[in-house]
Amino acid sequence: MAEDDRKNPVRLGYLAQDNLRVTIDIAEFNAKAGPGLAALTALLSSGVAGHAPAPDDRRAFLVGWGLVAALHRQACAVVLLHDSGLGHEAAPNRRLMIEYVAHLQWLVRDGDAAVDSMNKAFQYKHTGLRKAADAGGYQYDANAADAVRDAIIPSNPSDEFNIMSKLLDRLGGGLLQSWLAETQLSHASLPAAQCFYRESGQAVQLFDVPTYNLDGDPMDASPYVAFFFLYFGMIAFNELMADGPWRSDLRSIGEVAGLAGAI
């Protein structure tokens, strides 16, 4: 395995998942997800603030914590929807989990440059929000809006990764393909609509639950997918903490969940 592959936990994770699909059925996958998620939740509650870097080197850590905390809640939402028979409807949540993992990986690779680029993207989007608010006659704090508008944020090579497809393509490991697949069901699109009807000659079938031209339900693995992305997001966040305190625990959790060698 190439040196770059050994350093990329997301890529390693996807290789492991691909192998598991061959040897383990979905029920076995999901049986590992519950204990795995519980163990990851315990880590997130284990006093992370005590592992913050020094104040002058803390920006990536703080942004990373916001992302990994949100990632955890998305994992919980995916499992809850799946348990309610709404795994199909969890596509936007799974898609967002991929984005959170990608941004955590970006912070690990580019540090403060990634934070600056995220700020630049926020400034651009905030301008559009302000224009829309003005057009609609909505009220807002003009001083705060002016501060965002007037902030000087130098450009840097990391800026291009504010485009999600470029970031995912850079990270590799199947992230771009997974994100594009989830996107098909995350918007009002023809693929999303076509899950609810079939037409053959003069016959029309209409469904009130999603159907796929596949053997089985591809959404059945949602709990393991939720665990999988939270796991790799937390591997990335561990690199943003001062002393990487989770390494041993994450290794043990991965081994139990079928991801031995991911860290």
Rank of each mutant, 00 (worst) to 15 (best):
Ser186Arg: 04
Asp159Thr: 05
Val209Tyr: 07
Gly216Val: 02
Trp179Val: 06
Asp146Cys: 00
Ile235Cys: 03
Asp25Arg: 10
Pro157Asp: 11
Met1Val: 07
His82Trp: 05
Glu28Thr: 10
Lys125Phe: 06
Asp141Tyr: 07
Ala52His: 09
Gly87Glu: 03
Ala144Tyr: 12
Leu96Arg: 11
Lys32Val: 00
Ala52Gly: 13
Ala145Trp: 10
Ser158Ala: 15
Ala262Trp: 01
Leu259Met: 14
Ile152Tyr: 08
Ala262Pro: 02
Val204Ile: 11
Tyr231Leu: 09
Gly244His: 13
Ala75Asp: 04
Gly66Lys: 06
Ala193Ile: 04
Gly36Ala: 09
Tyr14Gln: 13
Met118Ile: 10
Ser252Gln: 15
Val225Tyr: 11
Ser158Tyr: 00
Asn93Cys: 07
Arg58Val: 15
Met164Pro: 02
Ala38Arg: 12
Asp150Trp: 03
Asp146Asn: 14
Glu89Asn: 07
Leu168His: 07
Gln105Cys: 09
Pro218Ala: 06
Gly36Leu: 07
Trp106Glu: 03
Leu129Gln: 14
Lys7His: 06
Lys125Ser: 08
Tyr124Trp: 01
Thr41Asn: 14
Ala49Ser: 12
Pro53Lys: 13
Asn19Ile: 01
Gly50Pro: 01
Ile163Phe: 12
Arg94Met: 09
Phe61Gln: 09
Ala27Trp: 00
Val22Gln: 13
Glu3Arg: 13
Trp246Lys: 07
Ala192Leu: 09
Met118Gln: 11
Asp208Met: 00
Ala102Lys: 05
Val79Lys: 10
Asn93Gly: 01
Val48Gln: 08
Leu104Glu: 04
Pro35Val: 08
Val22Lys: 14
Leu185Asp: 15
Gly64Asp: 04
Ala52Thr: 12
Ala16Tyr: 00
Met118Pro: 00
His82Val: 02
Ala203Phe: 02
Leu67Gln: 06
Val256Glu: 15
Leu12Arg: 15
Asn238Ile: 00
Ile253Met: 08
